[in-house]
């Protein structure tokens, strides 16, 4: 479902060229749970930005569900991002002035669903993350774990084929982090592909695949449990 061939990314600031990611090949299949690990500044975020079509690669081919997305215009790439990709951020990134219902509604608005359809999807997504009764709450009225669940509901509501999670438990205590990880695994089991950037080895080991990024080079390893099995 997701195929990257010969992808590389560099940034040019003034006369200085910085190679963020060296040429790599990567294929992620429907239902994969991929953990992306690596030290700070290694290129993880650039990798996630390109995967989420928020940045164009400098070179290479990028396909999502058979569609070449490397050089689409803004309107088209926004549409594909909206339909196929869900985002979960470390700092939740909920809009504080909107209540839970309206926050989950944001990506659906750009999909031009009817209000009935949106309502059904929002309610279903909130039920999936265990926040069915919190429609009217505003983000500051929720705990960190609950806020991240709302963010996950927002990512889920549009039924994307892939969820990109950037350190989703980075701002949570271990109990809340476990809850969020369990939720992500449930979503993955239901068939949604998950690509998760993490610094947490334990969480990375729970993934089906681990992608290491170091100094802009990508390599892949098998999680320990799978290797033993």
């Amino acid at each position: 479902m997701l195929k990257m061939s010969g992808i590389s990314k560099h940034f040019i600031v003034g006369n200085v060229k910085t190679q963020a990611l060296h040429s790599f090949e990567l294929e992620i299949k429907q239902g994969d749970f991929v953990a992306v690990v690596g030290p700070s500044g290694s290129g993880k975020t650039t990798f996630l930005n390109m995967t989420g079509m928020l940045e164009q690669p400098s070179f290479g081919q990028y396909e999502i569900d058979g569609v070449q997305v490397a050089n689409l215009n803004d309107k088209e790439s926004s549409r594909i991002r909206n339909e196929k990709i869900g985002f979960v951020f470390q700092s939740f990134n909920l809009i504080p002035e909107l209540n839970v219902y309206d926050n989950v509604d944001v990506p659906l608005r750009y999909r031009h669903f009817s209000s009935k359809e949106r309502k059904a999807r929002i309610e279903n997504a909130l039920e999936q993350v265990g926040l069915a009764g919190r429609h009217k709450h505003f983000p500051p009225q929720l705990s960190g774990g609950q806020q991240q669940r709302v963010a996950i509901a927002r990512a889920l509501a549009g039924s994307p084929s892939i969820i990109l999670a950037d350190e989703p438990t980075g701002n949570l205590d271990s109990k809340m982090a476990d809850g969020v990880m369990a939720l992500l695994h449930d979503i993955n089991k239901a068939g949604t592909t998950i690509v998760m950037v993490t610094h947490n080895d334990e969480q990375a080991q729970q993934a089906g695949r681990i992608v290491h990024i170091s100094d802009g080079y990508l390599s892949e390893s098998t999680p320990l449990q799978q290797a033993i099995a």
Binding site: K75, S78, R79, R81, Y110
Partner: peptide, 16 residues
């Protein structure tokens, strides 16, 4: 700008 960036990530085009 952070809200706009979020909306862009969630599928809003520049036109929207």
């Amino acid at each position: 700008s952070s809200e706009v960036a979020l909306r862009r990530a969630l599928g809003a085009s520049k036109q929207s």
